[in-house]
Design a protein around this nucleic acid. Sequence first.
DNA 1: TCTATATGACTCGTCGGTAAGTTACCACAG
DNA 2: CTGTGGTAACTTACCGACGAGTCATATAGA
Lengths: 203, 203
Amino acid sequence: MARPNAGTKGVPRLDREVQILDIASEQFGTHGYAATSVATVAEKAGISKPLIYNYFGSKEGLYEACLDRGGAIVAEEIERIARGDAVGIERGMQTLAGMFTLLEPQPHLWRLFFDTTAPTTGPIADSATLYADRIGKLAEEGVAELMALAGNSDQLDISAMTTVWLGIVDSLMDWWLDHPDQTADQMIQRCMRLLDALFGDHS
Amino acid sequence: MARPNAGTKGVPRLDREVQILDIASEQFGTHGYAATSVATVAEKAGISKPLIYNYFGSKEGLYEACLDRGGAIVAEEIERIARGDAVGIERGMQTLAGMFTLLEPQPHLWRLFFDTTAPTTGPIADSATLYADRIGKLAEEGVAELMALAGNSDQLDISAMTTVWLGIVDSLMDWWLDHPDQTADQMIQRCMRLLDALFGDHS
DNA sequence: TCTATATGACTCGTCGGTAAGTTACCACAG
DNA sequence: CTGTGGTAACTTACCGACGAGTCATATAGA
């Protein structure tokens, strides 16, 4: 009995993977890819580092697994709303409401897709930005509709507006992370009030 | 002649410091604090790493020096606009225009103050967020005015709106970094058009 | 010759990643 | 019911690379 802690603990691989992904997603989402160390994830999960490498291969592999799990549900929800018939600002508000409801337990999931500290080169990173592109494309589609309603079809304008829109969602998720006591419903109501304040004033 | 490159090159300390700060600000602003290595800055400046440590003490000291130089002019410009009589969205647009004009040569300067990869603990970091707070405070003041015009004085609403507003500025600077051929004037005109598109549509 | 300017060659801690071995569980032969 | 071997789950102890920070030293110019 040279190593008192070695040997199986009876936790099946799939269960363990889910547990690791939960913790890794939280770490990546709150502290960013670069500032998250695999050893920290292992410690928080109560296991050792090599087990993570056994299951996910590398740090990038772990990150990618987080994206695959979180990105699937986020992108699907946005696509569901995009298939509806709301346009312009109404579509934006519906998307926001959907995101708040979907991410009520873990708002940090959103930050995974737009982590600027994640590696930007290499074949793995390409597949990692897949969901960011998928979300960005739908955002651009919605923005283009909004701009078309205002008679603006300038490609650069649409591109800039899309960046701003994604930045707004990002900011709201940021704020939510700083105010974890807020429910999804409260966030939705708040956004409605902010929108009202904007459109109520034409100084 | 054991070290062919040693000895002074005749560059006075103040000149060298300015040169180092220019390069460091660009690196910190574009790649973030964590992803920037002191060795890279030294290499781009054509000098050696110890010289940077002689002049700035540490990586955090170098970062702080960048903030002091950049933050002073940015905060001053925002304060100048705040002293004007514009309110609501008009004040926001004037602030944006001021920022574009001020940061025409280096839009990455803006990103220094909101770098999420910078250390968040320690006495040096406290002083590093000084400018972020100064800018944030003025932003909150402007937002509170806007909200008051709409009859909303909820503190949390104001807080959230301030975060969103700073996120919008951030996004625009981001977009500008991706489109370096755009002039400050073009950016200002573009923002006017985006604003028009927003207020033109009430679906 | 004295000082400001400058550098090559280190140390040290951290982090991604790996090798090799340990233990629990399970199917199955007797 | 009891070995017994195979496999899945898990760990300790390590390596190599890289980046922050330091020391001793070198040279140009007043």
